[in-house]
């Protein structure tokens, strides 16, 4: 135990250090347990696919008919990706523009109110967005292209949900760029637009990108808001007005009555979601670290 006692002479300190180490180990164990349980519960599904040689069938289209033992997850995976990508395409430019406004154009009082509103919105529960989307956005789309509950509705609601995150992280990224760069731009007589687009944005890009990846992870994992407005029909998303079902919504809808292989397949899709989020956090970690190493001038 010498590594714990190193530099600790007091007895209470020693006890505290031991106690906290045990606590940390317990927490680490609990969190490992999450992954282990996901694997354990999805094992029947994974191994039976493996033995029957149909391991990659879930990627090919064979429909999602759990009763007939056909678990084609590909349409739902694609729907998840389409909804996430669409939400980012809508939210990124608007969020970035809001961050630029917040950082360079708004006077301090307006900026404070705007920031407060964004923080408040970031804390609004996803069911509330879902409820709002279901009673406002879906009827609006239905006027134009019935039935209304569609890929488009999910994209719009989700983009509204990730907007505050993107705006706030991008504003923080812009604020952390060294003032010298901006002063240099001003001294060279650049226009405001050039200063922002060609100096500040490139200098802050790695931190902005990190924030966007986090927002992507949030959008990918969002369940309730998407479930409430997307229509939940299992099919390949062919158009913006088609109802779709995403992976997370599928788990929420079927978990309450799923048994056997069906239940295991839901756990497998949970594992898939976790892996995707893991890739995203790894990407964001790499990007922000590279940005830091390259320095602000990179």
């Amino acid at each position: 135990m010498s590594w714990i006692a190193k530099g600790i002479v007091n007895r209470t300190d020693h006890r505290l250090s031991m106690m906290l180490a045990v606590l940390s180990a317990g927490a680490a164990l609990l969190l490992t347990l999450i992954v282990l349980f996901l694997i354990k519960e999805s094992w029947p599904f994974l191994s039976s696919r493996w033995h029957s040689g149909s391991w990659f069938d879930w990627l090919q289209y064979q429909g999602w008919y759990p009763q007939e033992n056909r678990f084609g997850m590909a349409p739902m995976l694609l729907a998840s990706l389409a909804v996430t990508l669409g939400a980012l395409i809508v939210a990124l430019p608007v969020g970035l523009a809001s961050a630029i406004y917040l950082q360079f154009y708004a006077n301090p009082k307006v900026a404070r109110t705007f920031r407060l509103l964004l923080t408040l919105l970031a804390g609004v529960p996803s069911v509330v967005f879902g409820l709002w989307g279901l009673t406002r956005i879906v009827p609006l789309i239905a006027l134009w292209q019935p039935p209304g509950a569609s890929l488009l509705a999910a994209i719009l609601v989700l983009s509204l949900m990730v907007l505050p995150t993107i705006a706030l992280t991008s504003a923080a990224a812009l604020a952390s760029v060294s003032g010298e760069l901006l002063h240099g731009g001003i001294a060279l007589g650049m226009r405001r637009k050039t200063q922002i687009l060609h100096i500040m944005l490139p200098a802050a890009r790695s931190n902005i990108f990190g924030g966007v990846l986090l927002a992507t992870a949030r959008a990918l994992g969002e369940t309730m808001a998407v479930l409430m407005v997307a229509g939940n029909v299992v099919q390949f998303p062919a158009g913006l007005f088609d109802p779709v079902r995403v992976l997370t919504a599928n788990i929420a809808l079927e978990m309450s009555y799923a048994m056997g292989d069906h239940r295991a397949s839901l756990f497998a899709s949970g594992l898939l979601l976790t892996a995707m989020v893991w890739l995203l956090s790894w990407g964001s970690y790499r990007v922000t670290r590279n940005g830091r190493e390259a320095g602000q001038y990179g």
């Binding site: 349980f37 997370t248 978990m255 989020v277």
Partner: peptide, 17 residues
């Protein structure tokens, strides 16, 4: 950091199991 980003529904699956 990874666990902070795991979708809440996955926590639900674990909690249920």
């Amino acid at each position: 950091d990874i666990l902070a980003g795991v979708p809440s529904i996955v926590y639900g699956l674990f909690g249920n199991a």
